[in-house]
Design a protein around this nucleic acid. Structure first.
Lengths: 226, 226
DNA sequence: CGTGCACTTGACAGCTGTCAATGCCGGTGG
DNA sequence: CCACCGGCATTGACAGCTGTCAAGTGCACG
């Protein structure tokens, strides 16, 4: 529904900027294909990747609350995106309240993901953070492609992975080799396999979230009374 | 509006649990008075405080996306809260679309705050994290009470502050004394004064956010066309 | 075949965690 | 009124995780 409401399709090559931080806010994007990172620059020259976006994701929605965009959206692979005007979004809340509630719920889900990220970055060391990242991405990829096995392609450099979990690329490398040696992961270039998911979960130190499905309250009073 | 839609008022003493993590989700809370922390337990025994709630805040909304609550809501002071059923929330999206859009926008604002928190915890060291926390709380308190000067009460122990920014209480203490010595903060028990806000901002390393006000698109097509 | 990018490795410094002890202070019981 | 107690702040010593710096390797690409 959102994708159809959008403007023309746009292609961005790997490494290209979909939208830079600090720009005036006039809408958001939908990711049709490819991977995108959402990052915040820190004044010491570093940057923090706050979210890895997969196909189907809404990009840049948090900045709707701001005058200037907070995040830089960078194409991790070649991507296709569609821009959507904020006005189109406003119409949805008035025309399709159930959809509005679903968008609200989706935003709350993103908050849970961010909360878990903070817990991971703030309270575990590098091994646990890598474990949490790999598990999180594998889980989301499995939702898109249920037939997927225990492995996947991770199109990020080790420096980008470091920007996600808050360590340097050198330490990402040390951590990968350590996890490999201990049998938690298998690597072949950017291809990762997770032979010991329970072990990784224990390393990550965070509970596995069960997302609410068939949430009845978003139907509102009509169906609730009907 | 939300507070009026809620159930009976409840009082919780300092240190009490408003709602524990892992419980079935059936709604959320509104904070009428006092301070509340929202935290996630990590399996190594630690915990991460993901949000400090001030009067007027909505508590526990992220867990609406889950089957079991993700956050433990702990009273940092004596507090008054009101519980609100999820059904009441669903009704709002259908009866008051503009309010629904505003709730959506508020959730996006919270995402920006969490994103900044991740950048702070992941990409700065203890001094910068303390600076970011103090600035953030002072800014929010100033919104509630515009006449407030450059100082405020922070009803958190140093251990709790450590749980917010992801360091130990010992290191929080070291950092406080260092910031004090360098003239960035003045302390008297739990009373904090910020004599050098620009300096703290530079330490924090994050941009100051300008929140969108008078967002027109949430009015939807009616007024947009009228 | 040269070039650039990413990965890998080692040495060392620095920030932070851990452990332990001390002091302070308000509340409580005698 | 005073001793005791528990929670919190403070401090020092030391270990460990992570950052920094630097160099080498491998590989894709022109």
């Amino acid at each position: 529904m959102l994708a159809e409401a959008g403007g023309p399709e746009r292609q961005v090559p790997r490494g290209g900027i979909v939208r830079a931080e600090g720009m005036p806010v006039n809408g958001f994007h939908v990711l049709l294909d490819g991977w995108v990172s959402s990052s915040i620059a820190v004044s010491d020259g570093g940057r923090q990747i706050v979210k890895i976006h997969l196909p189907g994701d809404i990009l840049g929605a948090p900045s709707l609350a701001l005058r200037h965009t907070a995040e830089t959206l960078t194409a991790l692979t070649q991507v296709r995106v569609r821009h959507i005007e904020a006005e189109k979004l406003g119409r949805i809340f008035h025309i399709a309240p159930r959809m509005g509630a679903a968008l609200f719920l989706s935003a709350q889900q993103e908050r849970v993901i961010l909360m878990d990220r903070i817990a991971s970055v703030g309270r575990t060391q590098a091994g646990g953070r890598v474990a949490a990242l790999l598990l999180h991405l594998h889980e989301r990829l499995s939702l898109i492609d249920p037939d997927r096995g225990p492995s996947f392609e991770l199109p990020l450099t080790q420096e980008q992975i470091g920007d996600v979990i808050g360590v340097t690329s050198v330490h990402v490398n040390r951590t990968f080799r350590d996890l490999e040696r201990r049998g938690f992961i298998v690597r072949d270039g950017m291809h990762f396999t997770l032979p010991n998911v329970p072990g990784l979960r224990a390393l990550a130190g965070l509970p596995t979230r069960e997302w609410a499905r068939d949430v009845r309250w978003i139907d509102g009073p009509e169906t609730a009374l009907g």
